[in-house]
Amino acid sequence: MRWQFANYTQEYMNQGHLACPGCGGAYAMRLALKALGKNTIVVIPACCWSIIDGPFPLHCLKVPVYHTAFETAAVVASGIRAALDIKGKTDIEVLAFAGDGGTLDIGIQALSAACERNDKIIYACYDNEAYMNTGIQRSSATPYGAWTTTTPRENFKKERKKNISEIIAAHRIPYVATASIGFPDDLIVKFKKAKEAKGTAFIHIFAPCPTGWRMAPELMITISQLAVDCKVFPLYEVFDGVKYVINYQPKNIPVKEYLKLQGRFSHLTEKEIEIIQREVDFNWEILTKKAKG
């Protein structure tokens, strides 16, 4: 069997969820729960997953979900963790599953505090690079060059994508990792490592949004593989905030191949694509230096 994935035959999601066709965030949850199993409580702040799980009285997941306010995913998870610990239920995992808005922007305060306390939770950010649930507005995770409804083509986003993994790694929590849904086995392994971490674990997941990226839905996996191979979203882990390990050597495909598949980048000129390529190369250089020692 080629995929290790196929060894995890149990599913923890029901069919019939409300995600758009080709939703990376929905698929990311499928993978995460395969790794974590039944003994998991999921905290979902305001994000696409608030809707995907189904309107009241429906529920998609086969584990309990607490829907909470936008900025509170990390701290509600901490609260649940404290409650479970005082009751001796230390074998139940608490997973905060938030979008990029609820992690990098409005939710960063609570997340930073949870990391500083090193509370034993797993915080997974499924990053679709904009506030998709409210209609594709820009977030600090929106990359340079992207169109969003608040960064229209005439004034596309000029700021770079906020590097949340680096920020969280600086908290020196035991485990930080980036993952892409195009690499399901790798993602599952990372969640399993997160479960073993002696403290807070943070996983930044590349989760494409065909609706918001103006992309064909069938490219959900291909784009997630291209992002890694073009070095736009490298796969790496940081242990205790200091030890960097790169998990996958990218194929070094020019970033243009990644950008051209998405309508949100269709307005970019050659020069702007060059800027992106240079930035991507530069970031990769920094990362490889860190990984060397």
Partner: peptide, 22 residues
């Protein structure tokens, strides 16, 4: 368990989580 939160908003949020867990 005494959770040393970083703001009052988080304080109530932590209580929400803990109470939801029983």
């Amino acid at each position: 368990k005494f959770i040393k939160v970083e703001s009052e908003h988080s304080a109530m949020a932590a209580c929400v989580g803990a109470a939801a867990a029983g």
